[in-house]
Design a protein around this nucleic acid. Structure first.
Lengths: 344, 344
DNA sequence: ATGGACGATAAAAACGTTTAACTTCGTTGT
DNA sequence: ACAACGAAGTTAAACGTTTTTATCGTCCAT
């Protein structure tokens, strides 16, 4: 038995395939009674739309390309693990649509640039979702130049307005800094993402402004930029704690670097809460299991990811990008007082 | 300017589209000189194969469905994070092929079953990769009944032979147990995955056999089955350490539960290496950052994931499943002596 | 010379859908 | 009474491939 097509239904009902096609997509050109007959026949024979025919005819792919930057296979560091949840969130948001998530794993920025050019020029997808945006992101320019629907996880600074979802890094750092200063900290370290990433810049600028507001000096030795692995967190704690005037607080940009920071504490014999404290941003709800649990800004990854999904759908429907911009404020979860208990 | 098709090349060269098509796919029916002309013209006009035409004509989708079971969006526990690396590994393995990874995120086993039936019956992909296999897995039966190419991450017990990749859980537990027994442990806890998962059963059976070999009694109170979240690790340490005769070693099935176990240690005031030790399986190389670092069996996730990719390719080419079965032995990384230092 | 085989290319059909253009027929307005 | 119109369908073309079948020389054996 062959799989039924609209032709099958046409024969079954005595109508033409054109009418069947129109009936199935609720065209006003076909009478309700006729449509009912078609629907009935379709169900009876177990008809399912064959996307290949549609794709060839319409040129639409019904694919949303998710570009995932992950370090190469040799790189066995704990990085980018939140992508799993991100992808599933996007996938669920598209669940009731005809769109599917098509995965493009790339190793670095250049590759993502090349892939995006290819997707855009060869129309390998109808929409693109990217992350790891830069302040001035050439990929965004590529997609905008081709008028190609896309949503970014992360903002950009110098690009024309586009659809995005991001955590409110500016506010997060501002609040975080004020809270630490209020608790007596004067030397606060910032473990930041790579400095070409947009949110790295946002966080850094917010940090500097917060220092100014608090009347504290800026010390470049207390700021590190890098790939947010545990190794990064560990190494920076090791070097910064060796300073003559070491930090009493570390703000880590994610849970991986926070874990690494703990490892550095352990190595140096530092006690959390006595010698210094660690605060982090966490979207996997994992830092509650650290020993001790730490204060975090928690943004469940499911929120931005489902937004990314719905935004790309709406963007592909033609909604203007300005209407599809959201900054989400992570929730402060205070698991520590974060005041240092004086050594005695 | 329209995108060039084989028709464009046909006009350009004065040949028919049939000849062009054959030339491009290296059919022996076309003369080398003719082929050269076609290739030249194709490059000159910038021709790229339009997959939609191919798909409609041949019925092939050039999609590999990756079924990813992740807890629902409400469930904000750290679980399944290794999927990110797994997916990128698969994606890279398919890079030089015309195949793409199409992501299907599901919330539970039943959903994955439904999705697979759909993919198989509606030919929404040419191959499927699943994980979380059960001892007797109905999804495997579905795919085998339809003679549909697939590879599993994880073995099965009662199903007909199929392509799979897995860690050698039997050996891993056997070696792990022998090592702990040798170091004086008599009460060894097993924090195991859900008992309907194939590797949960493998691990459990290996555990029981190892106890027998060592002449140790089996105590059901020392075995827990569950979703491998940090919460699971934590809770089991809390309850097991309250036993009148608590375990002196915990074998955790992944890094998430090991992290949770540490959290339980912290809560109960247990010191790693004095009161008990934690060993774990780790495929993200993260447990080296625990405080203290623990002994783990490390299998870089890139290995199984790239194998999954190449296996599904070979399976789709018609290679028999028996040739596509691999158990990978994780590498023991001893970061602790794991002998208890006696309290004094 | 004739017929057959073969090698190289062309013609045409097919995959399943959408959609522009056309037909048919009943209704409406004048 | 008749043109104009609208509603509801139909016809046919098109999307870009692959593949079966047909065509046309050319070469070779008879």
């Amino acid at each position: 038995m062959q799989r039924p097509t609209i032709k099958t239904i046409a024969q079954e009902t005595g109508l033409s395939i054109a009418t069947v096609s129109k009936a199935l997509k609720h065209s006003p050109q076909v009478r309700p009674e006729t449509r009912a007959i078609v629907i009935e026949a379709a169900e009876r024979v177990g008809y399912e739309l064959n996307m290949h025919g549609v794709q060839l005819r319409t040129g639409k792919t019904y694919q949303v390309a998710a570009i995932m930057t992950a370090p190469g296979p040799k790189q066995n560091e704990w990085e980018g693990v939140e992508y799993a949840q991100l992808l599933s969130g996007i996938s669920w948001a598209l669940e009731d649509s005809p769109y599917r998530v098509s995965l493009y794993a790339v190793r670095n920025f250049e590759e993502s640039q090349a892939i995006i050019k290819q997707i855009v020029s060869l129309k390998k997808a109808d929409g693109i979702i990217i992350s790891g945006t830069r302040a001035d992101d050439p990929r965004i320019r590529t997609m905008q130049a081709a008028d190609f629907p896309f949503v970014t996880y992360g903002t950009s600074v110098h690009n024309a307005p586009h659809a995005y979802v991001d955590a409110d890094n500016e506010q997060m750092i501002r609040v975080s800094m004020a809270r630490l200063v209020e608790r007596g900290h004067r030397r606060i370290a910032l473990l930041n993402p790579l400095s070409d990433l947009s949110y790295g810049i946002t966080r850094f600028e917010s940090y500097r402004r917060a220092l100014e507001v608090a009347g504290l000096p800026f010390d470049p030795a207390l700021v590190a930029h890098g790939r947010l692995t545990p190794a990064f967190g560990r190494e920076n704690v090791l070097t910064m704690s060796d300073l003559s005037n070491p930090p009493t607080a570390y703000i880590c940009a994610n849970e991986a670097s926070a874990l690494g920071a703990f490892s550095g504490f352990h190595e140096r014999g530092l006690v959390h809460g006595r010698d210094a404290v660690i605060n982090a941003t966490d979207d996997l709800n994992v830092s509650q299991y650290f020993a001790p649990p730490i204060t975090t800004y928690y943004l469940p990854i499911s929120e931005p990811s489902s937004l990314l999904g719905t935004y790309i759908l709406r963007r592909m429907e033609g909604e203007p990008p300005e209407a599809l911009q959201t900054l989400l404020m992570p929730k402060l979860i205070e698991r520590c007082d974060d005041r240092l208990t004086p050594k005695r």
